[in-house]
């Protein structure tokens, strides 16, 4: 490096050193940004994979419900439920990293919501038809600043109940109140929901935050 830079008279700006610094710093910086972008696009590619899987799951669920119509009350597809909860974790991590309003994340959430609603309807049918003993809960949350805190709190309470009573007894379907998705809008209309957080359990609607004690008494 020394040979490249001529040392001019003292008390000057050493332009060669400055240029070398600038070039090297910019190079490393660009490399850093490229690596960052590669990591981000890796994450975006991961979103595509999740989406593909969700699409596949939606179709598979359609088929399962068709088969269930014809047949008796055989085993519940529990692996799908586990996958649903894993996908929830992945989506919330992606929201943290790419931002809650990232278009790709929002699109992924739409697929995920479709699958959730499909699963909800399927389980509702089964409950009536086979007399299964579980609670189905629709949870409408919002990421808008005025309701994000209470929505998060409500989420913790629901998770707590799910952990306490087990996935077999309580099935929670979390839906973004603000997501532009026809199916969600229809549910909001059907249950006349006007705010988030809101909970629909057993066809009853509870708007605003509900503590764990309140919810437990409803569920009983």
């Amino acid at each position: 490096m020394e040979k490249v830079m001529k040392h001019k008279g003292e008390r000057e700006i050493h332009r060669d050193r400055l240029l070398a610094t600038f070039a090297l710093a910019t190079l490393i910086f660009i490399a850093g940004i490229l690596i960052g972008n590669a990591i981000t696009s890796g994450k975006l590619a991961n979103i595509e994979n999740i989406e593909d899987k969700l699409r596949f799951d939606i179709m598979s669920l359609e088929l399962e419900s068709e088969i269930a119509k014809e047949n008796s009350c055989s085993a519940i597809p529990t692996t799908l439920e586990e996958q649903l909860s894993e996908t929830t974790t992945k989506i919330s991590l992606l929201e943290d990293q790419l931002g809650k309003n990232n278009p790709r994340v929002l699109e992924l959430k739409k697929y995920y919501s479709l699958l959730e609603i499909r699963h909800y309807l399927f389980m509702q049918d089964r409950k009536i038809k086979c007399g299964d003993d579980y609670e189905l809960i629709l949870f409408f949350y919002s990421n808008r600043p005025e309701s994000i805190d209470t929505s998060e709190k409500q989420g913790y309470v629901l998770n707590y109940l799910k952990d306490k009573y087990g996935m077999e007894k309580i099935k929670i379907y979390s839906l973004d109140y603000d997501l532009e998705l026809g199916a969600i809008r229809s549910l909001i209309q059907i249950y006349s929901i006007t705010e988030a957080p809101s909970i629909v359990a057993d066809e009853s609607v509870y708007q605003g935050f509900r503590s764990k004690e309140e919810l437990e008494s409803f569920l009983r």
Binding site: M1, E2, M5, H7, R17, L18, A20, T21, F22, L24, A25, I28, F29, G32, I33
Partner: peptide, 22 residues
């Protein structure tokens, strides 16, 4: 990003300055 670039620039400036033979 601003902090990262500034940090990179200054550290490299110092390292290049240090490598000067005088």
């Amino acid at each position: 990003y601003v902090i990262a670039y500034f940090g990179l620039f200054m550290t490299l400036f110092f390292l290049l300055g240090y490598s000067h033979s005088r």
